[in-house]
């Protein structure tokens, strides 16, 4: 199939960007990123700079391959990352518009590549359980109800891609942050630090300049791991609780 790509080019964080048009030939069985590989090989042969885009695992788990395809982060398929999208979902003659995730907290580095360190900063603010190596009791000393383990797991499948932020008109990071808060809050090992964790992570989220949540739920619709907005509700509850406890603080107090 022959396609027209309108693809965002931007030299650096402060440079003005614009769309560039390219023709590319793709096969049905190619993945979307392989189609971009073809484009880049073409550009290299013309002695031009290829389009910078990020990718690594190419199987939907590392969360690197961020781009907006025809208005959708990670493209049209639900529950799918860009690297899992295949060209059989497109037709000969299609025009595809490709741009970076756009959010003020995710500055563009080059072309489609963005800086998501804000997510790391949120995790560093408290997205962990404070246990040193060697301090752990026997694994089976802490039974976890299968249901709780499973819910915690659903939240823990977040790949930190940032599509939720890109999908949100407010550029909010609530889905990402709440997924981590929920993962740890639902487990007995994590419960102890619930209050402090949620307080610190939410404050960090604000510091990073992410927007407020106004319940639009576009995040859930575009999340490649189908993380539920129920996590946001849980985080809000825990946050309010920690504020009222006045401890910034420990649930137990």
């Amino acid at each position: 199939m022959n396609l027209t790509l309108k693809i965002w080019r931007q030299k650096g964080p402060s440079a003005a960007g614009s769309f560039e048009e390219h023709k590319v030939h793709a096969e049905e069985d190619m993945s979307f990123l392989e189609m971009l590989d073809v484009l880049n090989e073409q550009l290299v042969h013309e002695k031009k700079e290829p389009v910078a885009f990020e990718h690594d695992c190419r199987e939907g788990i590392c969360g690197t391959c961020n781009m907006v395809i025809n208005g959708h982060p990670h493209g049209p398929q639900r529950g799918t990352t860009t690297c899992q999208l295949h060209m059989r979902h497109y037709n000969d003659g299609d025009t595809i518009v490709i741009e970076p995730f756009r959010a003020s907290s995710f500055p563009v580095i080059k072309d489609l590549v963005i800086d998501r360190s804000a997510f790391d900063n949120i995790i560093q603010a408290g997205g962990y359980i404070s246990v040193n190596t060697g301090q752990a009791p026997d694994g089976n000393a802490i039974p976890v109800e299968k249901q709780d383990a499973s819910q915690a797991f659903d939240a823990a499948t977040c790949i930190g891609c940032g599509a939720c932020v890109a999908a949100c008109p407010n550029g909010s990071a609530m889905l990402f942050t709440s997924a981590k808060v929920s993962h740890l809050a639902l487990l007995p090992q994590g419960e102890v630090e619930n209050g402090k964790r949620v307080y610190d992570m939410v404050n960090q989220m604000d510091k990073e300049g992410f927007g407020r949540c106004s319940n639009i739920t576009a995040c859930e619709a575009e999340c490649p791991k189908e993380i539920s907005v129920d996590n946001i509700a849980r985080m809000n509850r825990l946050y309010v609780k920690s504020v009222f406890a006045g401890t910034q603080g420990n649930e137990k107090n």
Binding site: V131, Q135, G139, A149, A156, H183, Q189
Partner: peptide, 22 residues
Amino acid sequence: RDIIDQCVAQGVPFAREYGGLL
């Protein structure tokens, strides 16, 4: 053996049986 203990303590959601054990 220590690895599993450590990971559980960190909150790694390993598969569990109905009784709550690993």
